[in-house]
Amino acid sequence: MSSIVEIKNLVRAFKMGDETVKALNDISFTIDPGEFISIMGSSGSGKTTLLNILGCLDKPTSGEYFLDGTNVGKLSKNELAALRNRKLGFVFQSYNLLARTSAIENVELPLLYNNEISAKERKEKALSALEAVKLTNRMHHLPSQLSGGQQQRVAIARALVNDPVMILADEATGNLDSRTSYEIMMLIQELNNVHGKTIVFVTHEPDIASFTKRTITLRDGRIIKDDVNNNVRKARDVLQNLPVLTE
């Protein structure tokens, strides 16, 4: 099976006045199907730039990026949009759900931009995505009626609904308390282990990275570490060992 992401000698440079700053400097790595990768690094290390490129929101200055066999650097804006729509799922730190829009309608959103999907299919896919995050009982609730963890689960369902080749999570637990973070990690681990989803998780917390199978660490635009995690923690176990609040 060919790899999902293939990055070769990738450079992303920004012009700051007269200077050229290389946010990413000669990066190469591949991601295979079913991997669960965390990308770590302090702020300014280039992890957001890498995420933007992986998410096809930005294009490399030089070098190559193949997503599921497609050379992203050669695509037009509209082709990039179509690629994001069909192949990628995003989970953001601040959920980014549409306000005053029910959970199911939020989940449906990516499919509205896909002409090949009928209204009936849209409903079915949205429902099964909500099922995967165990929120079918809240499908008609508005974001304001859901807790932070539930909102993030709706956002994960939205990332799942188009059956993407890769899910990109940007500090997806950053706005949540530790218990809810672990619950979300448990869900993501389940998506990876049970459903075989390829997941890239950008974070600056080593605690969260310890739940992933592989960690890429960036500093000053370069990969300084690319380790396979031999001792993956299970979020389920962590949750069970948390002290129970008694009142």
């Binding site: 929101l57 804006k77 509209n78 949009a81 994001r84 729509n85 069909r86 995003f90 980014n96 931009y113």
Partner: peptide, 16 residues
């Protein structure tokens, strides 16, 4: 603006 960014990230084109 944020909503527009989200829509674009999940695949909306400029014309959409």
């Amino acid at each position: 603006t944020k909503e527009i960014g989200l829509r674009m990230s999940i695949g909306a084109r400029g014309t959409d």
